[in-house]
Amino acid sequence: MATITLTPKYSFTVPVYAPCISPDSFAGKTLKEIGELEVWEGNRRKKLKQLFDIKGKTADTPEEITIKLSGNLWKVRRIGEEMTAGKILIDGDAGLHLGVKMRGGTITVKGNADSWLGSQMRGGTIEVMGNAKDYVGGAYRGSGVGMRGGTIIVHGNAGYDVGEWMRGGFIKIMGNVGAYTGVHMQGGTILVQGDSEGRIGALMKGGKIVLMGKIDSILPSFTIQDLKKRTKVEGEAVEGPFYVFIGDLTEDGSGKLFISKKSNPHLSFYERLI
């Protein structure tokens, strides 16, 4: 196992785009070569070494590499883009587009993550100890393709549009979520342990969303189907009971919402329809 540590040389005032910070592009390079990798600081083309102190040991394959980042990385974007293996540890907050299009390996963030965390990812695991902002596991404008595989776990809260256009994989939000969780979802699973701001599953065609916490109302384009004692998420049982809704019917969808009965007594009027 080889560990490479990156520390910012100064505090960045403008966005830094550094998709090269990934085990894949570090693999097989010397520290010096890694330092020569190109990044953008605003509109200036820079070398990684101009922005970061780079220390540690390198390795030949991404699997063997762990990248440790510390300091304020809130402005650093696209870390771990398209990585296939290895580890990234972020000791602090991470900027936009962390782990986008990732295919394998793990990313761990001690602090918070900005929007588009793991968007369009296909494999691997991202774990955020703090909060995440909007579009966790989401899509890019107009593409209609969100996350397709892998796992994202957020210990805190997440913002709007979690799992937008999601097609596969698993997202677990341990805190609360903003509105439109699973919007346009086609497949995969989202588990929310906290509350939802509403409009959960809007326009979904497939997939499954489990909500343990509260929600004010279910969209009128869903219909109640069942009341279930428990459900399975990633092979593990989650205790209910849950109201099960099907939708979004305006998109001829057959996605499933599992909404906790206990947290949402005001939805009990649906029971007469079961």
Binding site: A202, S217, P220, F222, T223, D248, L249, T250
Partner: peptide, 21 residues
């Protein structure tokens, strides 16, 4: 949003589970 989605249901001749939106 809720209103529009409800309208979309209705113009597709689908019934709503709720009495008011």
């Amino acid at each position: 949003y809720e209103i529009i989605q409800a309208l979309r249901m209705l113009i597709r001749d689908m019934e709503l589970d709720v009495d008011e939106v």
